[in-house]
Amino acid sequence: MVSLLNKAFQDAKNEKRPALLTYIVAGDNTKMKSLEILKSISNYADICELGFPHNTPIADGGQIQTSAYRAIKNGIKINDVFSIVKEFKKSKKTKPIILMGYYNMIFQYNENKFLDKCKKIKVDGLIVVDLPYPENKKFAARCKKKRINFIQLVSPTTSSLRLKKIIKDSHDMIYYISMLSTTGGKLKVSPKKILEKYSKIKNHNKSKNVVIGFGITEKSIKSLKKADGLVVGSAICKEISNSIKKRQNPVTNVTNIVKRLKNKIK
């Protein structure tokens, strides 16, 4: 059976464009609002990433930190994150959803229980920021058994030897971190350089869907169109912050951004 993730990439490919992946933090700024945002942007996004917020996010920059702190302050709990997914999947059965977060929360919930829950509510993939290869081997295998995609990350510092091993151990999708940065940094590497490394990864195994993330905004998205998929996170989180500040509806504003992003890669 083809996974929803693979299918989303295939559909985008058929339209000769990269898949658009969006990232928001569950519970930002409330449980209800984030569900609304998620539903609304999924009309344009091909794959939705949903962060389960942690209060010590060592790999996130200011924008996503702000979203995470806001969500936690508003009382979001891991079970709320699960219920957002469950609710979302009721109306958006075929839209793939990826949960993303830090390992301690999975560890405290219990790895097996966490994965059982993910399977039950039909989570399609998992990104665990601070569980790198090869430490993630066991966990990734457990995911596979439950038909949940464990998404391996690759960065500009990943050596060729390591890259080979990671790709070999990856599932349907690989996430290439565009530059040395936390999330939300300015794109400090030229698109050409990023795409060079991207091609290198792609050439190892063409059947894997490789997405690029970190530093992608409305300005830069078009220049990376060649990729299988492009992830936008901080730019969206920032829009939620701005909307709240201006007392505007984040659902409308965020949806508009995602719409524009999509138009740029069509």
Partner: peptide, 21 residues
């Protein structure tokens, strides 16, 4: 070999970018 004392304390739970450094 994974950096754990007593099989469970320590380790290196780091983002991919820091693996090389």
């Amino acid at each position: 070999q994974h950096g754990f004392w007593g099989g469970k304390f320590g380790g290196s739970f780091i983002p991919e970018t820091l693996k090389k450094p």
